[in-house]
Design a binder for these strands. Structure first.
Lengths: 200, 200
DNA sequence: CTGTATACTATACATGAGCATAGGAGCCCA
DNA sequence: TGGGCTCCTATGCTCATGTATAGTATACAG
């Protein structure tokens, strides 16, 4: 699939676009016309592309170009729940919190661990490029490593902070100098930050 | 789309299957052969299907049958191209820049305007919560309003900045005090920022 | 009873389309 | 220096294909 010459890439690109807009592939002559070259010129390119495995054609049939392994390799997506207002005292994963589902590329949700999403509120993580209103994609996990950004349950409040283990306590560190670190010995980690999604 | 006769449904079903297996639509004669009827018989059916809006054809073009409103198109996500390294001097939308496609929720790509995505490089927009490595989802547009974050082509460099119109010039403003604003009278806007996507 | 739609057959024609032969120019490798 | 690859022109053959005319038969609606 590699080893394509510049010209061949152009031709392949044209076929792509053509199919995109017409839903059916071009003829040899249409390809030739698109590049202002002779029919045989285009024909040779198509045969070269076929030999290189980028394309498949059926003999003697018009418009029988098929793209082999087209770029759109089904990048799958997964649906994860977006949790809305997290009321103090309620279990975070209760049904009441469910707002809607959002779709995220499956490569984020790499391992088969469940994920969820939260609206970010406040500016405590602003220096990490996380703004109020962003959607945070969280991998559900009870544990975290030093320096991970986590969603933690802290005295019935849910908060997004950077997480550190110190001698005999945990430190939850905002990424904003106006917020002091929180020290606690009693906290529950709900998940680790895996992605941020923002819409303008 | 309703009011199809039994025969017409059969024909439409055949076209469906044919495209499914071949990736390209059948010819009139292939359709005729499949039902052991005459060419004109099949031709009339196709024209009837077209009149009823189930199918679209282009005049005088072989294999130009297109299915109108194919079974299920309620995909809440859309694929947009992720452009990679933008080399100076090269057209940004050239095929060489194509890296892969990414999936974004369709509500971002609300209007039918084409979108694309870019890797963010550098820290010039850090105070807007846009970090190096983020993926920016851009709505293709030649224009922008005051204060929009835009992708602009500036002396063969592509840059992401906040855009302002001043008396007789444009101002491209970084969101980082260490970067001075850029003033120019000659710039081309490539698109407006619609979303940010970050993966940890 | 007539008009209109469906569902065909049979035949025909101009152009569309795949494929081929012959050849040329430039390039890199051995 | 020669062979093989890419990229192209020009011309042509043959069959595929969309479209058309003319006609048959059935059914249903006003």
């Amino acid at each position: 699939m590699k080893d394509l010459t510049a010209r061949q890439k152009e031709i392949l690109g044209f076929i792509h676009e053509y199919i995109q807009t017409n839903n059916y592939p071009p003829t040899v002559r249409e390809t030739a016309r698109a590049f202002s070259i002779s029919v045989k010129g285009a024909y040779d390119h198509l045969k070269a592309l076929e030999k290189k495995g980028c394309i498949k054609t059926s003999e003697k049939r018009s418009r029988s170009i098929e793209l082999v392994a087209p770029p759109e390799d089904d990048t799958p997506v997964v649906q994860i729940p977006l949790l809305g207002e997290i009321a103090a005292g309620k279990p975070i994963f209760a049904d009441e919190n469910f707002e809607r589902t959002i779709l995220v590329p499956a490569d984020i949700v790499a391992n088969r661990v469940p994920h969820f999403a939260l609206h970010v509120k406040g500016d405590s993580m602003i220096d990490a490029g996380i703004l109020s209103g962003d959607i945070a994609i969280i991998e559900r996990s009870e544990t975290a490593k030093n320096g991970d950004i986590v969603v933690a349950l802290l005295e019935e409040n849910v908060t997004l902070k950077r997480f550190y283990i110190e001698n005999n306590r945990f430190r939850l560190q905002a990424e904003n100098p106006r917020y002091a670190p929180i020290y606690t010995q009693d906290l529950r980690i709900l998940g680790r930050l895996r992605g941020i999604y923002r819409s303008y």
